[in-house]
């Protein structure tokens, strides 16, 4: 699809502003700006270069048509995030130093996860991390939301047994070390908390 901007009769900076507005939409389409004076031609070409576009100027009578394409225009499909990220959660706290702070940060982290894109595929909870998937967890609603969005939530069975919480699991399924390790090995992106 070609986006055409008719900037004929307009003086600088209008042709540049109009062209940049379309570029900022990042649609990856070809843009054609029509201008009819040398200053606008020069400035739109400068803009194209500065924004990473390649351009060809076609002269038609007193007008110039500047055809602009971005070399990475195919990137719009290539950059769609793949759903292949796994997060391993080893504690009910975020980081070390102060547990009270860690509890605040972990809530903030899981809330933020609910606002993020679709990359996340697996959440694996080990050791004290299983306190987050069981009764009384401060992040249960965020985890349930993520599960509804298709994120697989797995809690270590051995850990649940250790903390006597196997019957208190409120989100996701129980897993074992073999499955968890296999998921971690196959994930192209892994984050460990």
């Amino acid at each position: 699809m070609i986006r055409t901007i008719d900037a004929r009769g307009l003086t600088c900076p209008q042709p540049v502003i109009l062209t940049k507005r379309v570029m900022d939409e990042k649609s990856g389409e070809e843009i054609v700006t029509l201008v009819d004076n040398p200053t606008s031609l020069e400035n739109v070409c400068k803009l194209a270069s500065s924004q990473g576009y390649t351009f060809v100027v076609e002269t038609q009578g007193l007008e110039q048509h500047i055809h602009m394409t971005r070399q990475d225009s195919d990137i719009s499909t290539e950059m769609i995030p793949t759903k292949d990220m796994t997060i391993l959660v080893k504690s009910q706290y975020f980081g070390q130093g102060d547990d009270e702070l860690g509890a605040v940060l972990i809530k903030s982290f899981f809330y933020t996860l609910t606002e993020m894109g679709p990359e996340l595929q697996n959440l694996i909870f080990m050791n004290g991390g299983v306190h987050l998937t069981t009764e009384g967890s401060p992040v249960l609603e965020h985890l349930q939301f993520l599960e509804q969005k298709g994120v697989q939530i797995l809690s270590c069975g051995t850990c649940l047994d250790f903390f006597s919480k196997k019957d208190q699991l409120k989100v996701g399924q129980v897993t074992n070390m073999y499955t968890a390790t296999e998921i971690l090995f196959n994930a192209s992106k892994t984050l460990v908390l």
Binding site: C12, T39, N43, K46
Partner: peptide, 9 residues
């Protein structure tokens, strides 16, 4: 001089 013509960038 037209600043928005000659010095836009």
């Amino acid at each position: 001089s037209c600043l928005l013509c000659n010095n836009l960038f």
